[in-house]
Nucleic acid binder design. Structure first.
Lengths: 114, 114
DNA sequence: TTAATAGATCGACGGACTTCGATATATAGA
DNA sequence: TCTATATATCGAAGTCCGTCGATCTATTAA
């Protein structure tokens, strides 16, 4: 018969790293926020202000503001206040960080540093 | 004074692609599931059965089973039934798919095919 | 100063998620 | 067949999340 393997799990993502990584992925795990990031990245200048997003997204202003806050707190987006407006831009290094952490060869790299 | 830019947002991630992509990221956006994937990838054989995970994770059996279902339904993990046990393994192609979709140069690639 | 506008915050509602005990199903061994 | 074990399913409790109307703050223009 078969026996159940008992792997040792060395070099596994520890609790703390997992707890740091999950919220960043959670910030990305929303259709609206994915579209926002895509819109910022697709914009010619790499930036856009909230007022330009509400229309295309079809969402109320407080909702967009909420999503921007989530993205900001995850370090995925930066807001530059310019007069009455806030221009948002994606922080590509942060996106790359997550991509690298998902590299399967590294078993969800221990190298993630929230 | 400054004017607010009005970007055209061409080539932006459409609603459907975003709706397909988000649940896969949501499946990854949990500390326990990140650790599970890491454990599977770190295992010598690249596999492990549920019974080997409960202990290290410190979670009850139904909880682990629930997380495996989420990962399975997201296409991130595959379960191979062997006798009484189910051996799980990561599907690295799926992980790569998500990594590619997060490539900033592609503005959250339209190429994601959930 | 007053009016208008961009953005943030608050509170509430509905829905989804994580967790676990209890239970059901399937397989292996005696 | 009967017992033991691995896994799945169900139901419940508590928590978290997305959304929006109402409201507040900050800045600009008149």
């Amino acid at each position: 018969m078969d026996y159940c393997c008992t792997p040792l799990f060395e070099g596994v993502l520890d609790d703390r790293s997992a707890a740091e990584m999950a919220p960043v992925l959670a910030a990305l795990a929303d259709p609206v926020r994915l579209r926002i990031i895509s819109m910022l990245a697709a914009s010619e200048t790499g930036r856009a202000c909230g007022c330009d997003l509400e229309g295309p997204l079809g969402l109320a202003q407080p909702t967009v503001s909420h999503h921007m806050k989530v993205l900001r707190e995850a370090g995925l987006v930066e807001g530059i206040k310019q007069g009455r407006w806030v221009h948002y831009r994606v922080i590509p290094e942060r996106l790359a960080e997550i991509r690298d952490a998902l590299a399967p060869t590294r078993a969800l790299a221990q190298s993630f540093n929230g």
